[in-house]
């Protein structure tokens, strides 16, 4: 789909009253995050990168989202979200086993690594995992559909939508403290909110979005 919010960038508001110091601090840290190479095997990281690329494609014409960096940091912490499905192992072990199983599944089906599959092959394989319809023995007692629904999918989409580029692409207002919003009725926007491309206004959205701040 074409860019619905041309020219809109949440980061343009970084130095306005919509961002407090704490927000500036945590978002700057996130934007600066790099992908750890000391975690998981090279193959496991390649598998995870491909899964991320298929599940949450990069936004068009915007700074790339570093979802992999954020997710690797989470795997490094090996913490918890406050719950663990009783059929899944702990966070890091779950990724190690699940990513290995995806790789083996690719080999069993296509005789090649997951990260070397073309897009539609990779998507079909991920759909099979989503349905729990797998053929590799590498899954063992790790239920593929539960790994998908309780671990891989929520972690990947959460990591992606923690990035300002993803917020800009969806026209989200982004950080909003302390200023907040004034116009909360339908079809109204504050001057510091995104303009949608096809909203019928006389001034093109791309021009208006340059002045959001």
């Amino acid at each position: 789909m074409a860019n619905r919010f041309p020219g809109y960038d949440v980061l343009a508001k970084r130095d306005t009253l919509s961002w407090n110091d704490k927000t500036r601090e945590v978002i700057a840290e996130r934007l600066a995050m790099s992908e750890r190479s000391d975690l998981l095997s090279d193959r496991q990281r390649a598998t995870l990168r491909t899964a991320i690329d298929r599940i949450v494609p990069q936004p068009e014409g915007r700074a790339p989202v570093n979802a992999l960096a954020l997710l690797l940091a989470k795997i490094a912490d090996d913490g918890s979200d406050g719950h663990r499905h009783h059929q899944l192992p702990g966070l890091r072990a779950c990724y190690e086993r699940g990513l290995d199983a995806i790789e083996e599944e690719a080999k069993a089906r296509h005789g090649t690594s997951f990260h070397l599959l073309d897009g539609s092959q990779a998507d079909l394989l991920l759909s099979a995992i989503e349905r729990g319809d797998v053929c590799s023995n590498a899954w063992g007692d790790l239920p593929p559909a539960i790994f998908w629904g309780w671990r891989l999918l929520p972690d990947i989409v959460s990591s992606y939508y923690a990035h300002p580029s993803a917020w800009s692409a969806m026209g989200f207002g982004g950080p909003a403290s302390p200023r907040g919003y004034v116009r909360i009725e339908g079809d109204r926007r504050d001057p510091w909110e995104a303009v949608e491309a096809d909203d019928g206004t006389l001034i093109p959205a791309a021009r208006q979005n340059k002045h959001v701040g």
Binding site: M1, R4, F5, R54, I55, V56, P57, P59, D123, L126, L153, V157, Y161, A166, A169, M170, G171
Partner: peptide
């Protein structure tokens, strides 16, 4: 998931 998810989020 995939582009369908990104497109839906944009709405």
């Amino acid at each position: 998931w995939g582009q369908r998810l990104i497109d839906e989020m944009a709405r």
